[in-house]
Write a protein that binds this DNA or RNA. Structure first.
Lengths: 231, 231
DNA sequence: CACTTGATTTCGGAG
DNA sequence: CTCCGAAGTCAAGTG
């Protein structure tokens, strides 16, 4: 990886046209040729960039550019389209290269898939006497996260989200409508389970007779740990 | 902005739990306290990060951490939540700070402007025999994007949008009403051209006798490139 | 202010 | 391979 701090102006020509006036910025050139232009603020998103696959060439400035004080020009060309980035460098404050090697990558925890696995393992969290029928219960319109049975033997469809929003309720509603057409399953009730349920989603769900359950990821994981420690 | 290249491991605790094993990475500390952890690949998205508002503190490693070879620990705490990032630094390869100043920010050239230029250059996209009269045809209620003539000599007013919505149809309708009052131009027909036309807008437009044309930006640009290569 | 929508979205998984 | 949905999405516009 090459890291450059330089006074530069940037032009992007591709899906849109964008321009960055002359200012001091950080330029990051990654091993795959991709380039990131960062300012000293904002979010994690660069002001401008070129995604791989692409290649970077350092070319001589034109006469006009030289007159404007351009020292060097970086031309970053996308490999599979006409998209390109033209970085005009006026002054370099820092320039260094470093060998970082391949990154082992991020290990994520607590995403929807894990919530589903944990809830499936501890389905009694939804109430005493609940038993799991199936995870990822396939239907014509997609898989229902969890299908289980309550203490009375009634079928329950569970939709799991990290953040419970309106569209999650709509999704569960569609599943319920479909499942209730199946005489073997009907009547099927719904549970909307999420780490955080938005008030609007809760109102909509309860209005449709769907029970809302807030999932405590840490607690579920704790139950998991306790259980595994017993064996 | 501070730029550090270091062997480090990273743990994020917040909306989710994430871990980065020990490896050499670039750490960027921005003026607002936000921190970005980049590897030498991937896209513009960092492996891990903390968004502002947040604060960074360099603390002493615990005894256990020292034994594992941790030289220093960065604790990045989000100001408005419990989210935090813990960066354990094992070895520093590079560490430098730079004053970048406030960035003037990105100037985006609207896609609409480019679509207009491309369509004006390739007005025959609307049909055989079409010829351009004028771009940005001024009227009392604003400029009409494109005014042209079809094969039969009839005047055609074109409204161009990136996303064709109801209000774009309304706008074109107002122009058409005005232009049709001019005996030199009348009768004037309308074309609503957009990269994506919303169904509601299409229904409204066609109900008013306005033709809808979906613009293929890539194709138009391709025509442009082919043509310029011929000269 | 919250809500909605687009993004040079990116990223991952399933078919 | 493409298609589809989630994201610590972010960011801008709108009511």
């Amino acid at each position: 990886m090459r890291v450059v701090i330089a006074e530069c102006s940037v032009d992007y020509l591709g899906r849109l046209t964008a321009h960055l006036p002359l200012a001091t910025r950080l330029l990051m050139v990654k091993a795959d040729g991709s380039v990131l232009v960062h300012s000293d603020g904002g979010s994690y998103k660069p002001l401008n960039w070129m995604s791989p696959p692409c290649s970077m060439a350092e070319i001589a400035p034109t006469e006009d550019e030289t007159e404007e004080g351009v020292q060097s020009v970086w031309l970053v060309q996308h490999a599979k389209s006409e998209d390109h980035l033209r970085i005009r460098i006026h002054r370099v404050h820092h320039d260094s290269a470093h060998d970082l090697g391949i990154d082992p990558g991020l290990v994520k925890d607590g995403v929807e898939a894990q919530l589903q696995a944990l809830l499936a393992e501890h389905i009694e969290t939804l109430g005493t006497g609940y038993s799991l029928i199936r995870r990822e219960y396939m239907t014509a319109i997609g898989p229902v996260d969890i299908v289980c049975r309550d203490a009375t033997g009634m079928t329950v469809a569970v939709e799991i989200k990290r953040r419970g929003d309106i569209d999650g309720v709509e999704q569960l509603t569609r599943y319920l409508e479909l499942l209730n057409r199946d005489p073997h399953l009907a009547p099927v009730t719904g549970v909307f389970a999420a780490q955080l349920i938005k008030p609007q989603a809760r109102v909509l769900a309860e209005d449709r007779g769907i029970r809302c359950v807030t999932l405590d990821y840490e607690a579920l994981k704790g139950m998991d740990d306790t259980e595994s420690r017993l064996f």
